[in-house]
Design a binder for these strands. Structure first.
Lengths: 130, 130
DNA sequence: CAGAATCCTACCCGATACTG
DNA sequence: CAGTATCGGGTAGGATTCTG
């Protein structure tokens, strides 16, 4: 009855399914989402130190790690300008921007229903007339 | 330029923003997503032991923990039938089902672009003509 | 059957040096 | 400036045992 709503899942191989889940898991985690958001808000490449300032609460190590992961996933571009002292800029790729748009849609959907995310307001799917 | 694409974020209070991010973070994690997916596929309430079978690789402790969290967030309903031995059934709430639909859209979007999520295929946003 | 309790391990992450 | 390297605490999660 409801199962065919997820039919498209059947057209995925297990491998595709697992890889997509990984990507969602990584991208939707705490820091990646904040970083992508900051980069999108900036609307321009940001230096490492600017990111440290704007992503409140992140440590330098985790920022570095997260940026590397985002780069490997093709969501951001890291550009090194060979100067002294060095300058490094991070910016969204089109894919990163598009992904953020998709997540933003989900985000907004949730915000509009924030009051419902509570066990006390949970209602069963009415399947039988009882 | 791109910043106004995220204007709706400005209409969120910081609190709303943080809470929505929490919910995304929790729901998009490894096990919650799999559990919701299994429940949706089943299309009917599932017992604890059935979930253990179908959510491959999860431990009993983590399954319990995750189910509790999903219940607190109003995404699933836990029904205890006072019998010996006990029977407990879990099912999606309408909210849980709807949330999964939203995430499924994102999921599909990603699967359709799986090949792009790779640093080697990353391209800069062409902003200037250079 | 559906968990609760316990133990234990891996790794995540923050803090603090140090470097090209 | 933009990292790397190292140490240490907290915690998520697995394996096992026990119970109403």
């Amino acid at each position: 009855m409801t199962s065919d709503m997820f039919d498209f899942c059947c057209s995925m191989t297990d491998e595709q399914d697992a890889r997509a889940r990984e990507l969602i898991e990584r991208a939707a985690a705490k820091w990646p989402l904040r970083i992508l958001h900051v980069l999108a808000d900036a609307g321009a490449p940001l230096r490492f130190s600017r990111l440290m300032e704007r992503v409140e609460g992140i440590s330098q190590k985790v920022l570095t790690q997260t940026l590397r992961t985002l780069e490997r996933d093709g969501l951001i571009i890291r550009t090194l300008y060979p100067q002294v002292p060095p300058r490094v800029e991070y910016e969204l790729t089109p894919l990163g921007r598009d992904l953020l748009m998709q997540v933003a849609a989900l985000w907004r959907w949730i915000v509009e229903r924030l009051g419902d995310f509570d066990a006390r307001k949970a209602v069963k799917l009415t399947v039988t007339g009882v």
